[in-house]
Simulated assay, not measured.
Amino acid sequence: MKRIEQLQNLSREHHQSLSLAQKAIKTHEAQNAETIEALCQTIVQDYPLTWMKHFQVEEETIFALFSESKTSEVSQLCQLLEQEHRQMDVYYEQMKNADYTVLGDFGILLKKHTRMEERQLFPLLEDVMTEEQLQSVFSASS
């Protein structure tokens, strides 16, 4: 999908999250305890510096812009996506505490979430954000 330059860094990270989501779903479905534990431990190790950072960039540079308006499509979408960030944080905490039963749910939510951002949110942002706002996203995500 063609993406404007200022959103390309986040889009590339979305590609990585879709790969992780698919791996989490397949690993969960295979029901191999050792493989599930290994992937969960990798997620726990990577999550703070990769995914929490990604979520923070989105929340501070995109979602915050639309938090005042509770009625716009973009605002409602941002609120839902932020709730999903918090749910993924919960799954991370569970995996961190050796509850690996959430791996499949984590993968399903990450896949749904990422697709929603790419297919719904980003096209809207390209239409409603100013050049200055988009540049702020780009700077924060570089």
Rank of each mutant, 00 (worst) to 15 (best):
Q133H: 05
S17T: 06
D127T: 13
V128S: 05
T50V: 11
G104Q: 06
C40F: 08
Q87M: 08
L49N: 14
M88K: 07
Q16L: 14
F122A: 01
K70A: 10
L10G: 07
F55W: 01
S17A: 15
M52S: 15
I4C: 07
E13Q: 14
L10S: 08
S136L: 12
Q133V: 06
D127M: 13
S19F: 04
S19G: 10
P48W: 10
G107Y: 04
E132Y: 08
K53I: 02
Q56N: 10
C40Q: 05
V102F: 05
L10K: 05
L7K: 05
M88W: 00
D127S: 14
S17D: 11
Q120H: 10
L18G: 02
I25V: 15
P48R: 10
A30H: 09
Q83A: 11
D46P: 00
S139T: 13
K112Q: 14
E59R: 02
Y91F: 15
D99Q: 12
R12C: 03
E29W: 01
Q41P: 00
R115G: 10
H15E: 15
E126F: 04
A38H: 08
N9C: 04
T50A: 12
H54Y: 10
C78R: 00
Q87W: 00
L77C: 12
E13G: 07
A64K: 12
M1Y: 09
L65F: 03
F106S: 06
T130Y: 11
T130H: 08
L39K: 08
S75Y: 01
E60I: 01
S69D: 15
Q22C: 01
Q135M: 12
L39F: 08
S75V: 01
R115L: 15
S136D: 11
L80M: 12
L39V: 09
S139I: 07
M1S: 14
K2C: 00
I36W: 04
L18Y: 03
L39S: 08
V137T: 08
C40A: 13
E84Y: 01
D127W: 00
V90K: 10
E29R: 10
Q133M: 10
H14C: 12
K96P: 02
H113K: 04
T42R: 15
H14R: 04
W51R: 03
Q16D: 15
S142E: 13
A98D: 11
S142N: 13
G107L: 07
L10Y: 05
S17V: 02
L80S: 12
S139C: 04
A98H: 14
S75M: 01
I43T: 07
D89I: 04
E58K: 09
Q76N: 11
L18M: 13
M129T: 08
